[in-house]
Amino acid sequence: MDGIADIGGKQGFGRMPEQRDNLPFHHDWEPFTYVAALLAAEKGWWTFDSGRHAIERISPRDYMRAGYFERVLIGMATLYVEHELLRHDELEERAGGEGSFPLSPAIGPGQASRRHRPEFKVGDKVVVRNESPTGHSRAPRYCHGKRGEIVGIAPKAHFPGEMAHKVDAAHEHTYHVRFEGSELWSEVKDGSSVVVDLFASYLDPPN
Rank of each mutant, 00 (worst) to 15 (best):
I4T: 10
E98H: 05
A169C: 02
H158R: 04
N22A: 11
D28K: 01
I153G: 09
Y175R: 11
A139Y: 06
P105D: 12
P60T: 03
Y175Q: 10
G67Y: 04
V188Q: 14
R87D: 01
Y68Q: 12
D197R: 10
R138W: 09
F48C: 07
H53M: 07
C143W: 08
E90F: 04
E187P: 04
S104K: 07
P17K: 04
M16S: 10
G191N: 08
I107A: 05
Y80E: 04
Y202D: 11
F13T: 08
K189T: 14
D62R: 05
H165K: 09
G152D: 15
A164P: 07
S100F: 03
V35K: 08
R71E: 11
V128G: 10
L86T: 00
R61V: 06
P155L: 02
H88K: 03
T78K: 05
Y68H: 15
F159T: 00
G67C: 08
F120E: 14
F101R: 10
P60Q: 05
A5N: 11
L184C: 08
D124E: 10
A169P: 00
P160E: 13
E18W: 02
K125F: 04
T33C: 14
V151H: 12
D124C: 13
R65H: 11
D21V: 01
F179S: 12
L198R: 12
G108N: 03
S113L: 01
S104L: 06
G3S: 15
V195K: 10
D124H: 15
S113Y: 02
L38G: 06
P60M: 03
H176I: 09
R178F: 11
E18P: 00
A36C: 09
R15W: 03
G3I: 00
G181M: 12
L86S: 00
F159N: 01
A157G: 02
K125Q: 12
R94V: 12
I107Y: 01
G75V: 13
R117P: 04
L73D: 14
R57A: 04
F199L: 02
A5Y: 05
D6E: 04
W46V: 15
S132T: 14
R138T: 13
F101I: 05
C143N: 13
V167G: 04
H171T: 00
G75E: 13
M76C: 09
F32W: 11
A66R: 07
